[in-house]
Amino acid sequence: MLELANIRKAFNQGQHNEYWALKGIDLEIPPARVNVLKGPSGSGKTTLLTILGCLARPTEGRVRLKGEDISGLPERFLTEIRRSTFGFIFQQFNLVRGLSAIENIILPGYPTGTPRARLVERAEALLADMQLSHRRDAKVEWLSGGEQQRVAICRALINDPEILVADEPTANLDSKLSAEFLAILRRLAEAGRTVILTSHDPLVVESEVVDRVYSLRDGRLIEVVDTRRAWP
């Protein structure tokens, strides 16, 4: 599905504070699985996630999406791929304050020029799926943490992406909500979506919904473990 070959990423390249966050990573993300990037802070997992999600470009190396090399594409095409193939859930949820839940959800659909009625219809279906229909017109700042996260998931799914990318999604949730969130991820993976998340939360890493764990340390991949005993 998504392949990385010898990925290296530098920040402040050529300056005195040059820093290599990733020092040669090769990995392959299988489709329709829940994948976790794990590692202590500073291990480069978030940087790796931005490269997997086409938010950033590697300094060196290749990114292949369904066999096609996308690391050399210009910004416009990359945005297009990001929009159609990836859905993002951020640690701080990054919802736009002042807008209602439904308006937040349909935001990623705006640049596609999809008619509003269709976007709203899709968003309503997603909200219903997350048992959030009653909060449809509530401003996002009035929602609880769990509700905000579910709105963020809906927003990530509005353009029907194949890959869902989440950065430390449970950092702001208690155990019960984290468990609910993981159950949602499971459902999504079973429905055929690929899920990639970073986490150092044992609750996530050791959860039975996770299919594969990639351990990082100091910008290198040190271990890949398939955790599910039985593949569905």
Binding site: L55, E75, R76, T79, L95, V96, R97, L107, P111, R155
Partner: peptide
């Protein structure tokens, strides 16, 4: 700062610079 943050979010969820 609020507007800058919003623009960052929009970019991240797939808006182009032109949008």
């Amino acid at each position: 700062a609020e507007e800058k943050r919003e623009i960052g979010i929009l970019k991240a969820i797939g808006w182009e610079t032109g949008d």
